[in-house]
Write a protein that binds this DNA or RNA. Sequence first.
DNA 1: GCGGCGTTTTCACTGGATGGAAGGATTCTC
DNA 2: GAGAATCCTTCCATCCAGTGAAAACGCCGC
Lengths: 277, 277
Amino acid sequence: MKDAVPTVEPGRSVTSKVLAMLAAFTAAEPELTLSQLARRARLSLPTAHRRAAELVEWGALERDARGRYRIGLRLWEVASLAPRGVGLRDAAMPFLEDLYEVTHENVQLAVREGAEIVYVERIAGLHAVPVWTRVGGRFAMHATGVGLVLLAHAPASVQQEVLGLPLRRFTDRTVTDPKALRRILADVRRLGYAVSDGQVTLDALSVAAPITDPDGEVVAAVSLVVRADGAQPAALAPLVQTAARGITRALRATAAGRPVMRSPPRPVPAQRPGSAR
Amino acid sequence: MKDAVPTVEPGRSVTSKVLAMLAAFTAAEPELTLSQLARRARLSLPTAHRRAAELVEWGALERDARGRYRIGLRLWEVASLAPRGVGLRDAAMPFLEDLYEVTHENVQLAVREGAEIVYVERIAGLHAVPVWTRVGGRFAMHATGVGLVLLAHAPASVQQEVLGLPLRRFTDRTVTDPKALRRILADVRRLGYAVSDGQVTLDALSVAAPITDPDGEVVAAVSLVVRADGAQPAALAPLVQTAARGITRALRATAAGRPVMRSPPRPVPAQRPGSAR
DNA sequence: GCGGCGTTTTCACTGGATGGAAGGATTCTC
DNA sequence: GAGAATCCTTCCATCCAGTGAAAACGCCGC
């Protein structure tokens, strides 16, 4: 006999449920109760409870004092092995550092993920222009300096996808006309850097340059975000480009040489210290 | 009838298998073939293949040009929501920045995870003393500056666990006697900062100070690592302590105020752009 | 062409995963 | 401080997602 609705909704793998639980966390709400977690991942409470328990035991999730769940440090550790995340970051950091020190402005490092950009690193002084970016955060490609660089060097299919959709207007100066944008992208390729002047917020201007991997593929972009009034993009470009070239060189070095870095005298035992109960 | 060995090894949840696959990646080998992945996670090839496919589809894993697997940017994005990871980092970054700018030495930020420390952030100039740490990397507690700070303020159970095990000797100067170490920990609590002089490598000296959460709990530590010869720990301590206090204050501010940060005009649509196939 | 290695698919079986229900614990409301 | 509301945890019978063996497939290097 088949009842009204099968109690178990078929077609969802356990893996997808676990991933849905991880995806339930957002920057706005990085801590969730079990019920919230279950609702957002579209799981029954017992199921969410069991999966969450396993994730906590492993360290992918943690529970705070009130029993709420949050992303655990162990997951963060593993995730920091992402070549496009920390690998890139480590190679780039010294150069970003220099860039910051010379300018004391916002320095950003981003990669493309699908039709959006993801910020991998951000250095913001206490006195620099406020920007909306966050490490690990996403943003549209058509308005920011790094976005324009990455879009200009993205596969044609991605460009079509982005240019095909209606482009979000952040300010009066945001370029939303596909034709105009294509022209801008051509300029970016020709000049070797991108300028976004007041396209995200009217008071900010960003200058960005491409970073390439050993094969010559553009894999990331650096940018400098400064106050828009009185900024001289053409004067900032060489700075940003120099940093980008330095990072490109560093990437080539790490790819050629040893895996990632020199190793400690002997690695610390990797065993998970059992919870002292 | 029960055959030699049950073909399916019971008692392993799907979740644990997925997590084992993630844990298979290491800093030394951040890219793995399917076979390596299966072996390290102790899974049959078909199983590893199926799980890996799901993980790739979601973005937890990626495949490089040669078809090898690596940690994906999507997992890195989610993991960057870990309060003890990026949340802490964001609050601390401007102060670490200042510390670096004044000294041009290695600046490190770490938290305790079980009986070890995990480095959450690291600023290393091109010219600073080489250190063995890596963002996301683990290390023993008894030898480094940050380790001593975190150990000095850890629960008694953790201190006993660490002091009970044989302490690894990195150099001639590494303190491995539990009695001596206890005395040092008492000093750390009394002075408000820790000094590790040549205990990891003979040429490096680190000065570290504790960071507390709004409840007064020590949750992290900052340190400055400099060349050992001619270093004046007592002179560096105020610098490090000032940074630590600044971060402590910043943590209190984020905890009290808005969740994490000001939000963009309207959040970028959070949907995963479908892979254009 | 042939052997070695890694990847992918197929297939029948089964045990881990499942949701409803019920029982506890805790916090909020009046 | 009673009562309600919300959230968390455990139990149990059912069943479908997950499983490994085996074989087909693809890709080198020799």
